[in-house]
C-alpha cells in the first residue's frame, strides 16, 4: 500500500484529474497526500531578479490549498510543497522532492498548462519518467479537457 502519494500539479485541469486518482490512492492506504507545485521562473534579469513565468501563481497555490482542504473531511493527511525553479527544471524538482519526502508513487497528468498543448505528452511528465525513483501514475487528459 502506498502510504505517501505525491501529486504533481501545475494548477491545470489535467492536474485536477490526476488529483482524483491520487486522492483515491491515499484514501485507500490511509496515507498522506503530498501536493507538489513548482513555480517556474524566468532567467535572471540584469539585476539578477527572476519572475514567475505565469502571472497567476498566487491563485494556483490558493487553488491547490483549497483542493487539499476539500479532502480533509475524508480524514486524509495532506501537505503542500511549493518549489521555485527555472524553466525545464520542474521534473527534476518533482523527483528530488519525492525522494526527500519518501514518496512512494507520483501521480501526474499527461499534459498541463504549457503552451504546446498539441503535444500528446507534456515535457514535465516525459522527463519525470526518466528521473522518477518510484512508479509514476500518468493520468490521461483528452484535448478538450486541457486549459
Amino acid at each position: 500500500m502506498f502510504k505517501k502519494v505525491v501529486w504533481a500539479t501545475d494548477g491545470s485541469k489535467a492536474a485536477d484529474k490526476a488529483l482524483e486518482v491520487a486522492a483515491d490512492l491515499a484514501r485507500e492506504s490511509g496515507g498522506e497526500l503530498i501536493a507538489l507545485h513548482c513555480v517556474e521562473l524566468t532567467m535572471p534579469g540584469k539585476a539578477g531578479g527572476r519572475l514567475p513565468v505565469y502571472a497567476n501563481e498566487d491563485e494556483v497555490v490558493t487553488k491547490i490549498e483549497g483542493q487539499l482542504s476539500g479532502l480533509k473531511p475524508d480524514g486524509l493527511q495532506t501537505k503542500v510543497r511549493v518549489a521555485r525553479a527555472g524553466i525545464g527544471e520542474a521534473a527534476q524538482i518533482v523527483a528530488d522532492a519525492t525522494v526527500e519526502e519518501g514518496g512512494e508513487v507520483i501521480v501526474i497528468g499527461t499534459r498541463g498548462r504549457g503552451p504546446l498543448t498539441g503535444l500528446l505528452l507534456g515535457s514535465v511528465t516525459q522527463r519525470l519518467l526518466h528521473l522518477a525513483p518510484c512508479p509514476v501514475l500518468v493520468v490521461p487528459t483528452r484535448a478538450e479537457e486541457t486549459d
Binding site: L120, T125, L129, A132, P133, P135, V136, L137, V138, P140
Partner: peptide
C-alpha cells in the same frame, strides 16, 4: 513501448522503473 503507450492511452498508465 512505454513511451508510446502513455502518449496514446486514454486510461491511467502506471510506469514502473
Amino acid at each position: 513501448v512505454s513511451h508510446a503507450v502513455i502518449q496514446h492511452a486514454d486510461r491511467t498508465v502506471v510506469v514502473v522503473p
